[in-house]
Amino acid sequence: MTILSSIPQSSAPARGQSVNARILRLAWRSSEMKVASLLFLALCLLTLLGPFVIDASATKISVADKFLPPVFMEGGRLPYFLGTDQLGRDLLLRSLVGLRNAFLIGVVSVMLMFVLGCAIGIFSGYRGGWTDVVLMRITDIQMSIPVIILAITILGMSRPNPFTIVAVLVLSGWPIYARVARSVTLAERQKEYVRAARIIGASDLRIMVRHIAPSILPPIAFVAVLDVARMMIFEAIFGFIGIGIQPPTPTFGTIISGGTQYLLNAWWITIVPGCLLALSLGSLNLMGGVLERSRNLVLQGAA
């Protein structure tokens, strides 16, 4: 509110920092952020080191060891911490590999859709006129094909592999980024600094790349963390329906769907990897949520 901003030299410690630094700082101050990032780091480490430390295989079939429950249950034994599946493969390792694959697919596809979407959005918003109308109608078209329909059409018809999966995710994800980037650019274009840049002779490209992009992208990027989690969920769903990465490479979707038949006798095949996935997604989402909240607070001037 004006009353606070009119107080001279407010004692807020955040003075002298750029907006982005303030957002990160504010986010880091919350305990949720610390817990979530620690959890996330731990999972990363586990994923990286797990295959070397655990003496078991994610893909080798060993009938003798099938349907072993997790170690904390009766009948479970090491090295199978989380038990084994119907073919005697180690569930923890399978989950970790699945996690890594899902995470890679999530990060790559979000990065691509972020770049593509924001570039189109900034261009569209800055140019305005017919360019804008045409580009926005294209996003309309793209957005009116539900992701799942697009995915099952493309992936169900062709043989899915990581590239086509990323392609489908990017294809269905970019319009949202384009929309957001465009609407911020529209507001940004009116601002004095853009006019100031044009007056000193800066070209349109320069203004878009050097002036508009750096000021609008970070806030969008903070929220993109949430999308990584969303994409990982899509990857799991694809796997479950059978249009994700194909076996024998383990993915969450295939592990879960493979286990459904044995739900009553060996529930852990389905439930346990899901918990691991939920845990990692939870940490990502919590980080994203805190970042989003801090961003809103900072942009509204409340902090």
């Binding site: 907006v19 982005n20 004095e192 600094y193 006019r195 100031a196 002779g201 750096p214 000021s215």
Partner: peptide, 19 residues
């Protein structure tokens, strides 16, 4: 353009904050 410059009103929004 070089010979013909314009100064704007708002000192806060007319210069980029991250540069």
């Amino acid at each position: 353009r070089r010979r013909f410059q314009l100064l704007l009103q708002d000192p806060y929004t007319s210069i980029p904050s991250h540069v």
